[in-house]
């Protein structure tokens, strides 16, 4: 088990290989569909002008994302009434939906780790090589277990996106994941896809 504490150095990222089990520590930011579209439209492509508290949010998030981690997660959160937030259930969501955005978001903010489930495709894999960055696969559905590794909810941005889609800043301790896409161009997902394709072809010939 390799322990990783955010922010990560380039050297730490380069040391990671597909198949390595990792245990995560430090600060990470959740962000999924609405967050990625917001980051791209407002701050990268700039097709949308910043509105409301956008400027404030990005100022707080930018230093956290530099060398940091974005976690594809829409949590169940308790304490919404009192703002004494607590993560109750917080497993990963399917990452492939962010494929159109992820490479640009990684490059723009210097993010070193994407945490999610199901893996991502060629553009993200290429960005993992150039940034460098890694894709860390959390266990889908293991939501109560992962929530118990969240030691503190530091804050939340863009809560107007709704609880699942907001960007939550959290501190974690011993968050379990596996490297499935590394910074050397290897992807476990591409490998399993190819092997299962060959198996499917055999079964359809029968």
């Amino acid at each position: 088990m390799i322990e990783l504490t955010f922010p990560l150095s380039d050297a730490a990222v380069r040391d990671l290989k597909v198949g390595d089990p990792v245990s995560l520590y430090g600060t990470m930011v959740t962000g999924r569909d609405a967050a990625h579209k917001w980051l791209i439209d407002t701050f990268i492509k700039k097709t949308r002008t910043p509105q409301g508290d956008d400027a404030q949010a990005i100022e707080a998030l930018t230093p956290l994302l530099k060398g940091g981690a974005i976690y594809h997660c829409g949590p169940v959160v308790a304490g919404l009434d009192t703002k004494q937030y607590r993560f109750v259930a917080a497993g990963p969501t399917t990452s492939i939906r962010e494929e159109p955005y992820q490479a640009d978001v990684l490059q723009h903010f210097g993010i070193k780790a994407v945490i999610g489930k199901g893996g991502m495709a060629a553009r993200t894999l290429a960005a993992c090589q150039s940034v460098p960055a890694v894709y860390l696969h959390a266990i889908g559905g293991a939501a109560t277990l992962i929530a118990q590794t969240v030691t503190r909810v530091v804050g939340v941005h863009k809560l107007d996106f709704g609880v699942p889609e907001a960007l939550w800043v959290i501190e974690v301790k011993a968050f379990p994941a596996v490297v499935t896409m590394d910074s050397h161009g290897h992807s476990l997902h591409a490998e399993v896809e190819a092997q299962s394709r060959a198996a499917l072809d055999r079964l359809l010939k029968a």
Partner: peptide, 13 residues
């Protein structure tokens, strides 16, 4: 853990 703590098995309910 989810059964013990009466908390959602998966966050996507």
């Amino acid at each position: 853990l989810a059964r013990r703590d009466s908390s959602p098995i998966c966050q996507d309910t």
